[in-house]
């Protein structure tokens, strides 16, 4: 197997480990990359109970059927992306287990399992001003009444497409973004966060 140190995250060139040393306290925003998370895209029929139970059997998580919601069965999370599309996330490396398990579980059923782990990275935006920061680039209503913990949405952020997921009350938003856009998004977020004070952190 290939040496893990050869694996490079989308933002490795930003030198985040060095930046973390100088992280300021009391920052209104903390930015970090959460790289290599396993991400498996699922396509199938929500009306097909067999499909839903096949996912449950293989991934151990219920697929959310309400738009823009998520289901979590630690360490696996299922995010609703569309009426026939979900994203299953899990810790790094789990895609090597999840993809074959889901494919086997579906058998001849018309459903698609697509490994997108390498396509994307996750930037976490945390802190008291996280909503204010995202509001600079996102037209959605991210107020807790409209976008509670556990909500997710595929939307535009700045000038890129992104998947937003509110994971805790801090609040912490996880922004899943195509790898090639990660540097742009990072620079954009760090600049837009300046007025709140920004700290960079490694995970």
């Amino acid at each position: 197997m290939v040496e893990p140190y050869l694996r490079q995250s989308a933002l490795v060139h930003r030198g985040l480990s060095r930046a973390a040393a100088g992280a300021m306290s009391g920052a209104g925003i903390v930015l970090s990359e959460r790289p290599f998370r396993a991400m498996v895209n699922l396509r199938g029929e929500a009306s097909d109970a067999g499909f839903l139970s096949a996912v449950r059997a293989a991934a151990g998580v219920e697929l959310p059927l309400q738009p823009n919601t998520t289901q979590r069965a630690a360490p696996v999370t299922a995010l609703w992306l569309g009426p026939d599309e979900w994203l299953i996330t899990a810790p790094a490396g789990e895609e090597r287990v999840l993809v074959p398990a889901l494919r086997a579980s579906f058998g001849e059923r018309h459903a698609a399992v697509i490994d997108l782990t390498e396509s994307r990275t996750v930037i976490a935006v945390s802190g008291a001003h996280a909503r204010d920061l995202l509001a600079k680039g996102c037209t959605l209503d991210l107020h807790p009444r409209a976008f509670p913990v556990g909500a997710c949405a595929q939307t535009g952020l700045a000038r890129a497409g992104a998947l937003l997921h509110l994971v805790d009350e801090a609040p912490t938003f996880e922004i899943t973004i195509l790898r090639s856009f990660a540097d742009y998004m990072w620079v954009w977020l760090a600049d837009a966060a300046q007025e709140y004070g920004v700290a960079l952190r490694t995970e």
Partner: peptide
């Protein structure tokens, strides 16, 4: 315009060999 200027005017997409 806000910060839609310079390098942020439009996203710059980087390939794995960019650096």
């Amino acid at each position: 315009a806000s910060r839609d200027l310079g390098d942020l005017l439009d996203p710059i997409r980087r390939t794995p060999t960019h650096g």
